[in-house]
Amino acid sequence: MHLLNPNMARTTPPPVMEARRWLEGVTFSSKQPLINVSQAAPVDPPPVALREAIAQAALEDDSAHIYGPVLGLPELRSEVAAQWARIYDGKVTEEQVAITSGCNQAFAATIATLATPGDEIILPTPWYFNHKMWLDMSGIAAVPLLTGEGLLPDPDEAARLITRKTRAIVLVTPNNPGGVEYPAQILRAFYELCAAKGIALIVDETYRDFDSRTGAPHDLFTSDWDDTLIQLYSFSKAYRLTGHRIGAMIASPARLAQAEKFLDTVAICPNQLGQRAALWGMRNLGDWLGEQRTEILDRKAAIVEGFPALADNDWKLRGTGAYFAYVKHPFDIHSEELAQKMVRKIGVLCLPGTMFVPANDRWGRTELRIAFANIDRSGIAKLFARLEKLKF
Protein backbone atom coordinates (compact mmCIF):
# COMPACT_ATOMS: atom_id res chain seq x y z
CA MET A 1 0.00 0.00 0.00
CA HIS A 2 1.78 3.11 -1.26
CA LEU A 3 -0.45 5.87 0.13
CA LEU A 4 -1.70 5.70 3.69
CA ASN A 5 -2.58 8.32 6.26
CA PRO A 6 0.09 7.86 8.96
CA ASN A 7 -2.48 8.55 11.69
CA MET A 8 -4.54 5.64 10.39
CA ALA A 9 -1.47 3.43 10.22
CA ARG A 10 -0.71 4.17 13.88
CA THR A 11 -4.25 3.31 14.97
CA THR A 12 -4.63 -0.16 16.46
CA PRO A 13 -6.91 -2.72 14.76
CA PRO A 14 -10.45 -3.02 16.18
CA PRO A 15 -9.95 -5.11 19.35
CA VAL A 16 -13.13 -7.18 19.12
CA MET A 17 -12.40 -8.10 15.51
CA GLU A 18 -8.80 -8.91 16.45
CA ALA A 19 -10.00 -11.21 19.23
CA ARG A 20 -12.41 -13.00 16.91
CA ARG A 21 -9.46 -13.97 14.74
CA TRP A 22 -8.13 -15.96 17.69
CA LEU A 23 -11.01 -18.37 17.12
CA GLU A 24 -9.80 -19.34 13.65
CA GLY A 25 -8.82 -22.99 13.44
CA VAL A 26 -10.08 -23.78 16.95
CA THR A 27 -12.72 -26.49 17.42
CA PHE A 28 -14.85 -26.49 20.55
CA SER A 29 -16.41 -29.64 21.94
CA SER A 30 -19.97 -30.13 23.16
CA LYS A 31 -18.53 -30.70 26.62
CA GLN A 32 -16.65 -27.39 26.51
CA PRO A 33 -18.41 -25.01 24.11
CA LEU A 34 -17.05 -21.53 23.59
CA ILE A 35 -17.88 -18.97 26.28
CA ASN A 36 -17.61 -15.63 24.48
CA VAL A 37 -17.22 -12.73 26.91
CA SER A 38 -15.32 -10.47 24.54
CA GLN A 39 -18.00 -8.03 23.34
CA ALA A 40 -20.19 -5.75 25.42
CA ALA A 41 -23.35 -5.99 23.36
CA PRO A 42 -26.51 -8.08 23.52
CA VAL A 43 -26.78 -10.70 20.80
CA ASP A 44 -30.50 -11.33 21.29
CA PRO A 45 -32.90 -9.42 19.02
CA PRO A 46 -35.27 -6.77 20.35
CA PRO A 47 -38.47 -7.97 22.03
CA VAL A 48 -41.17 -9.13 19.63
CA ALA A 49 -43.37 -6.10 20.21
CA LEU A 50 -40.55 -3.79 19.18
CA ARG A 51 -39.78 -5.86 16.10
CA GLU A 52 -43.44 -5.67 15.16
CA ALA A 53 -43.31 -1.87 15.52
CA ILE A 54 -40.26 -1.78 13.24
CA ALA A 55 -42.02 -3.97 10.68
CA GLN A 56 -45.11 -1.79 10.80
CA ALA A 57 -43.02 1.34 10.25
CA ALA A 58 -41.23 -0.32 7.34
CA LEU A 59 -44.53 -1.24 5.70
CA GLU A 60 -46.68 1.78 6.47
CA ASP A 61 -44.44 4.81 7.01
CA ASP A 62 -43.08 5.95 3.67
CA SER A 63 -40.91 8.59 5.37
CA ALA A 64 -38.96 5.80 7.09
CA HIS A 65 -37.26 5.05 3.77
CA ILE A 66 -36.01 8.50 2.77
CA TYR A 67 -33.58 11.05 4.17
CA GLY A 68 -34.65 12.65 7.42
CA PRO A 69 -33.34 15.58 9.47
CA VAL A 70 -29.59 15.42 10.01
CA LEU A 71 -29.97 15.90 13.78
CA GLY A 72 -32.69 13.28 14.02
CA LEU A 73 -36.45 12.89 14.20
CA PRO A 74 -38.00 15.80 16.10
CA GLU A 75 -40.29 13.40 17.99
CA LEU A 76 -37.32 11.35 19.22
CA ARG A 77 -35.31 14.44 20.15
CA SER A 78 -38.29 15.77 22.08
CA GLU A 79 -38.82 12.44 23.87
CA VAL A 80 -35.17 12.28 24.90
CA ALA A 81 -35.32 15.83 26.22
CA ALA A 82 -38.47 15.15 28.24
CA GLN A 83 -37.22 11.88 29.71
CA TRP A 84 -33.78 13.32 30.49
CA ALA A 85 -35.35 16.28 32.31
CA ARG A 86 -37.33 13.80 34.40
CA ILE A 87 -34.52 11.27 35.00
CA TYR A 88 -31.96 13.91 35.96
CA ASP A 89 -34.44 16.38 37.49
CA GLY A 90 -32.83 18.92 35.21
CA LYS A 91 -33.22 21.19 32.23
CA VAL A 92 -32.93 19.64 28.76
CA THR A 93 -34.68 20.88 25.61
CA GLU A 94 -35.20 19.33 22.19
CA GLU A 95 -32.74 21.86 20.74
CA GLN A 96 -30.03 20.37 22.98
CA VAL A 97 -30.50 16.84 21.61
CA ALA A 98 -29.07 15.31 18.44
CA ILE A 99 -29.64 11.73 17.30
CA THR A 100 -26.60 10.00 15.84
CA SER A 101 -25.71 6.76 14.07
CA GLY A 102 -24.65 5.09 17.29
CA CYS A 103 -22.81 6.43 20.31
CA ASN A 104 -19.41 6.05 18.65
CA GLN A 105 -20.53 8.52 15.99
CA ALA A 106 -21.72 10.85 18.74
CA PHE A 107 -18.20 10.77 20.16
CA ALA A 108 -16.61 11.35 16.76
CA ALA A 109 -18.94 14.28 16.06
CA THR A 110 -18.22 15.75 19.48
CA ILE A 111 -14.46 15.59 18.98
CA ALA A 112 -14.82 17.06 15.49
CA THR A 113 -16.42 20.16 17.05
CA LEU A 114 -13.78 20.46 19.77
CA ALA A 115 -10.31 19.55 18.58
CA THR A 116 -7.89 19.72 15.71
CA PRO A 117 -4.72 17.69 15.05
CA GLY A 118 -2.17 18.39 17.77
CA ASP A 119 -4.77 19.10 20.46
CA GLU A 120 -5.18 16.90 23.55
CA ILE A 121 -8.06 15.01 25.13
CA ILE A 122 -7.73 13.48 28.61
CA LEU A 123 -8.93 9.87 28.91
CA PRO A 124 -8.93 7.92 32.19
CA THR A 125 -7.30 4.51 31.90
CA PRO A 126 -8.32 1.84 31.33
CA TRP A 127 -10.09 3.61 28.48
CA TYR A 128 -12.74 2.64 25.94
CA PHE A 129 -10.65 1.60 22.97
CA ASN A 130 -12.85 3.18 20.26
CA HIS A 131 -12.41 6.59 21.91
CA LYS A 132 -8.65 6.16 21.73
CA MET A 133 -8.82 4.88 18.14
CA TRP A 134 -10.80 7.91 16.96
CA LEU A 135 -8.36 10.31 18.57
CA ASP A 136 -5.40 8.47 17.04
CA MET A 137 -6.77 8.49 13.51
CA SER A 138 -7.69 12.18 13.94
CA GLY A 139 -4.15 13.15 15.01
CA ILE A 140 -5.36 14.22 18.46
CA ALA A 141 -3.31 13.20 21.50
CA ALA A 142 -5.01 10.96 24.06
CA VAL A 143 -3.55 11.93 27.43
CA PRO A 144 -3.89 9.04 29.90
CA LEU A 145 -5.27 9.77 33.35
CA LEU A 146 -4.26 6.82 35.52
CA THR A 147 -6.88 5.49 37.92
CA GLY A 148 -6.15 3.83 41.25
CA GLU A 149 -7.29 0.65 42.94
CA GLY A 150 -10.97 1.54 42.64
CA LEU A 151 -10.61 2.54 38.96
CA LEU A 152 -11.99 6.00 39.79
CA PRO A 153 -10.42 9.05 38.11
CA ASP A 154 -9.08 11.81 40.37
CA PRO A 155 -10.02 15.39 39.40
CA ASP A 156 -6.87 16.73 41.07
CA GLU A 157 -4.70 14.43 38.97
CA ALA A 158 -6.63 15.49 35.88
CA ALA A 159 -5.99 19.15 36.70
CA ARG A 160 -2.25 18.49 36.59
CA LEU A 161 -2.56 17.10 33.06
CA ILE A 162 -4.37 20.10 31.57
CA THR A 163 -2.28 22.19 29.17
CA ARG A 164 -3.04 24.93 26.70
CA LYS A 165 -3.73 22.14 24.15
CA THR A 166 -6.34 20.36 26.28
CA ARG A 167 -9.82 20.52 24.80
CA ALA A 168 -11.82 18.05 26.92
CA ILE A 169 -11.90 15.35 29.57
CA VAL A 170 -13.84 12.18 28.76
CA LEU A 171 -15.59 10.10 31.43
CA VAL A 172 -17.48 6.84 30.83
CA THR A 173 -19.93 5.83 33.57
CA PRO A 174 -20.83 3.07 34.25
CA ASN A 175 -17.38 2.45 32.94
CA ASN A 176 -16.28 0.46 29.94
CA PRO A 177 -14.09 -1.55 30.53
CA GLY A 178 -13.95 -1.28 34.33
CA GLY A 179 -17.65 -1.45 35.14
CA VAL A 180 -17.38 1.05 38.00
CA GLU A 181 -20.10 3.63 38.55
CA TYR A 182 -18.64 7.10 39.09
CA PRO A 183 -20.06 8.81 42.20
CA ALA A 184 -22.04 11.99 41.58
CA GLN A 185 -19.53 14.06 43.56
CA ILE A 186 -16.69 12.98 41.26
CA LEU A 187 -18.67 13.99 38.18
CA ARG A 188 -19.50 17.32 39.80
CA ALA A 189 -15.82 17.91 40.62
CA PHE A 190 -14.82 17.19 37.02
CA TYR A 191 -17.56 19.48 35.75
CA GLU A 192 -16.36 22.34 37.92
CA LEU A 193 -12.76 21.72 36.88
CA CYS A 194 -13.66 21.79 33.19
CA ALA A 195 -15.84 24.88 33.59
CA ALA A 196 -13.02 26.69 35.40
CA LYS A 197 -10.49 25.74 32.73
CA GLY A 198 -12.77 26.51 29.79
CA ILE A 199 -12.69 22.98 28.39
CA ALA A 200 -15.46 20.45 27.72
CA LEU A 201 -16.54 17.58 29.92
CA ILE A 202 -17.71 14.64 27.79
CA VAL A 203 -19.73 12.09 29.76
CA ASP A 204 -20.49 8.85 27.92
CA GLU A 205 -23.45 7.16 29.62
CA THR A 206 -23.95 4.29 27.19
CA TYR A 207 -24.65 1.90 30.10
CA ARG A 208 -26.72 4.26 32.24
CA ASP A 209 -29.79 2.04 32.06
CA PHE A 210 -27.91 -0.67 33.97
CA ASP A 211 -26.60 1.53 36.78
CA SER A 212 -27.23 -0.17 40.12
CA ARG A 213 -28.14 3.08 41.86
CA THR A 214 -31.66 4.44 42.13
CA GLY A 215 -32.41 8.00 41.16
CA ALA A 216 -30.31 10.32 39.02
CA PRO A 217 -26.66 9.22 38.71
CA HIS A 218 -25.53 12.87 38.85
CA ASP A 219 -26.85 16.43 39.04
CA LEU A 220 -25.05 17.94 36.05
CA PHE A 221 -28.25 18.82 34.17
CA THR A 222 -29.73 20.83 37.04
CA SER A 223 -28.07 24.14 36.13
CA ASP A 224 -27.00 25.96 32.96
CA TRP A 225 -24.85 23.05 31.88
CA ASP A 226 -24.38 23.26 28.14
CA ASP A 227 -21.36 25.57 28.03
CA THR A 228 -19.32 22.72 29.54
CA LEU A 229 -21.15 19.38 29.48
CA ILE A 230 -21.58 17.11 26.46
CA GLN A 231 -23.38 13.87 27.21
CA LEU A 232 -23.36 10.79 24.95
CA TYR A 233 -25.90 7.98 25.03
CA SER A 234 -26.72 4.74 23.20
CA PHE A 235 -30.08 3.13 22.51
CA SER A 236 -28.31 -0.06 21.43
CA LYS A 237 -27.93 -1.61 24.85
CA ALA A 238 -31.29 -0.53 26.28
CA TYR A 239 -33.46 -1.84 23.43
CA ARG A 240 -31.13 -4.33 21.71
CA LEU A 241 -30.80 -2.09 18.66
CA THR A 242 -27.10 -2.63 18.07
CA GLY A 243 -27.54 -3.28 14.35
CA HIS A 244 -29.67 -0.17 13.86
CA ARG A 245 -26.94 2.21 15.11
CA ILE A 246 -28.85 4.82 17.13
CA GLY A 247 -27.18 7.07 19.70
CA ALA A 248 -27.53 10.58 21.04
CA MET A 249 -25.42 13.67 21.70
CA ILE A 250 -26.74 16.10 24.32
CA ALA A 251 -25.07 19.51 24.06
CA SER A 252 -25.64 23.19 23.41
CA PRO A 253 -27.63 24.14 20.30
CA ALA A 254 -24.57 26.06 19.07
CA ARG A 255 -22.38 22.95 19.30
CA LEU A 256 -25.03 20.78 17.66
CA ALA A 257 -25.12 23.23 14.76
CA GLN A 258 -21.43 22.50 14.24
CA ALA A 259 -21.90 18.76 14.76
CA GLU A 260 -24.58 18.86 12.05
CA LYS A 261 -21.85 19.58 9.50
CA PHE A 262 -19.99 16.43 10.52
CA LEU A 263 -23.09 14.25 10.69
CA ASP A 264 -24.38 15.41 7.33
CA THR A 265 -21.03 14.59 5.75
CA VAL A 266 -20.62 11.05 7.11
CA ALA A 267 -24.20 9.70 7.25
CA ILE A 268 -26.63 12.50 6.22
CA CYS A 269 -29.16 11.25 8.77
CA PRO A 270 -29.48 8.51 11.39
CA ASN A 271 -31.14 5.23 10.47
CA GLN A 272 -34.82 6.00 10.03
CA LEU A 273 -36.23 2.67 11.19
CA GLY A 274 -33.82 2.60 14.11
CA GLN A 275 -35.00 6.02 15.25
CA ARG A 276 -38.61 4.92 15.14
CA ALA A 277 -37.65 1.81 17.10
CA ALA A 278 -35.88 3.88 19.76
CA LEU A 279 -38.88 6.21 20.05
CA TRP A 280 -41.31 3.29 20.37
CA GLY A 281 -39.05 1.66 22.94
CA MET A 282 -38.81 4.82 25.04
CA ARG A 283 -42.61 5.16 25.05
CA ASN A 284 -43.56 1.51 25.55
CA LEU A 285 -40.75 -0.58 27.03
CA GLY A 286 -40.13 1.00 30.43
CA ASP A 287 -41.18 -2.10 32.35
CA TRP A 288 -39.31 -4.42 30.01
CA LEU A 289 -36.15 -2.32 30.34
CA GLY A 290 -36.53 -2.48 34.11
CA GLU A 291 -36.56 -6.27 33.87
CA GLN A 292 -33.41 -6.22 31.74
CA ARG A 293 -31.72 -4.01 34.32
CA THR A 294 -32.70 -6.42 37.10
CA GLU A 295 -31.18 -9.32 35.14
CA ILE A 296 -27.92 -7.46 34.51
CA LEU A 297 -27.67 -6.50 38.18
CA ASP A 298 -28.21 -10.16 39.10
CA ARG A 299 -25.31 -11.09 36.85
CA LYS A 300 -23.18 -8.46 38.56
CA ALA A 301 -24.16 -10.00 41.90
CA ALA A 302 -23.19 -13.44 40.58
CA ILE A 303 -19.75 -12.09 39.68
CA VAL A 304 -19.25 -10.67 43.17
CA GLU A 305 -20.63 -13.74 44.93
CA GLY A 306 -18.61 -16.22 42.90
CA PHE A 307 -15.32 -14.36 42.83
CA PRO A 308 -13.95 -15.52 46.21
CA ALA A 309 -13.23 -18.92 44.65
CA LEU A 310 -11.01 -17.18 42.09
CA ALA A 311 -9.54 -14.89 44.73
CA ASP A 312 -8.27 -18.03 46.49
CA ASN A 313 -6.14 -18.53 43.37
CA ASP A 314 -4.89 -14.93 43.52
CA TRP A 315 -7.29 -13.43 40.99
CA LYS A 316 -8.44 -9.91 41.87
CA LEU A 317 -11.70 -8.21 40.95
CA ARG A 318 -10.77 -4.61 40.13
CA GLY A 319 -14.23 -3.47 39.10
CA THR A 320 -17.65 -4.72 38.08
CA GLY A 321 -20.86 -3.14 36.86
CA ALA A 322 -23.06 -2.66 33.80
CA TYR A 323 -21.86 -5.40 31.42
CA PHE A 324 -18.33 -5.79 32.79
CA ALA A 325 -15.95 -7.39 35.22
CA TYR A 326 -12.39 -6.11 35.07
CA VAL A 327 -9.97 -8.56 36.67
CA LYS A 328 -6.30 -8.97 37.48
CA HIS A 329 -4.98 -12.43 36.65
CA PRO A 330 -2.36 -14.24 38.78
CA PHE A 331 -0.11 -15.65 36.05
CA ASP A 332 3.41 -14.68 35.03
CA ILE A 333 2.28 -14.24 31.45
CA HIS A 334 1.33 -11.23 29.35
CA SER A 335 -2.45 -10.74 29.25
CA GLU A 336 -2.60 -10.77 25.44
CA GLU A 337 -0.81 -14.10 25.30
CA LEU A 338 -2.98 -15.36 28.14
CA ALA A 339 -6.20 -14.35 26.40
CA GLN A 340 -5.21 -16.24 23.26
CA LYS A 341 -4.23 -19.33 25.23
CA MET A 342 -7.51 -19.26 27.15
CA VAL A 343 -9.36 -19.85 23.87
CA ARG A 344 -7.57 -23.15 23.30
CA LYS A 345 -7.14 -24.30 26.89
CA ILE A 346 -10.53 -23.53 28.44
CA GLY A 347 -12.74 -22.30 25.59
CA VAL A 348 -13.06 -18.72 26.85
CA LEU A 349 -12.73 -15.62 24.67
CA CYS A 350 -12.16 -12.31 26.49
CA LEU A 351 -10.12 -9.18 25.90
CA PRO A 352 -6.72 -8.45 27.45
CA GLY A 353 -6.15 -5.30 29.45
CA THR A 354 -3.55 -4.16 26.92
CA MET A 355 -6.41 -3.18 24.62
CA PHE A 356 -7.53 -0.52 27.11
CA VAL A 357 -4.29 1.19 28.13
CA PRO A 358 -1.24 2.86 26.55
CA ALA A 359 1.45 0.56 25.19
CA ASN A 360 3.79 1.32 28.09
CA ASP A 361 1.19 0.75 30.83
CA ARG A 362 2.31 -2.14 33.02
CA TRP A 363 -1.15 -2.78 34.45
CA GLY A 364 -2.62 -3.88 31.15
CA ARG A 365 -0.30 -6.85 31.02
CA THR A 366 -1.93 -8.30 34.14
CA GLU A 367 -5.61 -7.59 33.44
CA LEU A 368 -8.58 -8.97 31.48
CA ARG A 369 -12.02 -7.61 30.64
CA ILE A 370 -14.96 -9.99 30.98
CA ALA A 371 -18.16 -8.78 29.29
CA PHE A 372 -21.09 -10.72 30.74
CA ALA A 373 -23.88 -9.23 28.61
CA ASN A 374 -24.64 -12.61 27.09
CA ILE A 375 -24.07 -15.09 29.91
CA ASP A 376 -26.52 -15.47 32.78
CA ARG A 377 -25.85 -16.54 36.37
CA SER A 378 -25.44 -20.17 35.26
CA GLY A 379 -23.04 -19.15 32.51
CA ILE A 380 -21.01 -17.09 34.97
CA ALA A 381 -20.69 -20.14 37.23
CA LYS A 382 -19.41 -22.17 34.28
CA LEU A 383 -16.97 -19.40 33.37
CA PHE A 384 -15.59 -19.26 36.90
CA ALA A 385 -15.25 -23.05 37.01
CA ARG A 386 -13.07 -22.92 33.91
CA LEU A 387 -11.01 -20.02 35.23
CA GLU A 388 -10.43 -21.92 38.50
CA LYS A 389 -8.88 -24.78 36.51
CA LEU A 390 -6.62 -22.50 34.46
CA LYS A 391 -2.97 -23.26 35.23
CA PHE A 392 0.38 -22.21 33.73
Rank of each mutant, 00 (worst) to 15 (best):
E192G: 11
E192Y: 09
L193V: 14
C194H: 05
A195I: 01
A195G: 07
K197S: 15
K197I: 05
K197C: 13
K197T: 08
K197R: 15
G198V: 10
I199M: 04
L201F: 09
L201V: 06
I202E: 05
I202K: 07
V203T: 02
V203S: 03
D204M: 00
D204R: 00
T206P: 00
T206A: 03
T206G: 01
R208I: 14
D209V: 09
F210A: 11
F210M: 09
D211M: 10
D211A: 15
S212F: 04
R213H: 14
R213P: 10
R213L: 15
T214A: 14
G215H: 10
P217N: 08
P217R: 01
H218D: 15
D219E: 13
T222E: 12
T222V: 14
S223K: 14
S223H: 13
W225L: 10
D226V: 06
D226S: 12
D226Q: 13
D227P: 05
D227Q: 15
D227Y: 04
T228Y: 04
T228W: 00
L229G: 07
I230P: 07
Y233L: 06
Y233D: 10
S236L: 02
A238C: 08
Y239S: 01
Y239R: 00
Y239I: 00
R240Y: 02
R240T: 05
R240M: 09
R240A: 12
G243Y: 07
H244P: 00
R245S: 07
R245P: 00
I246Y: 08
A248G: 14
M249E: 13
I250P: 06
A251T: 07
A251I: 11
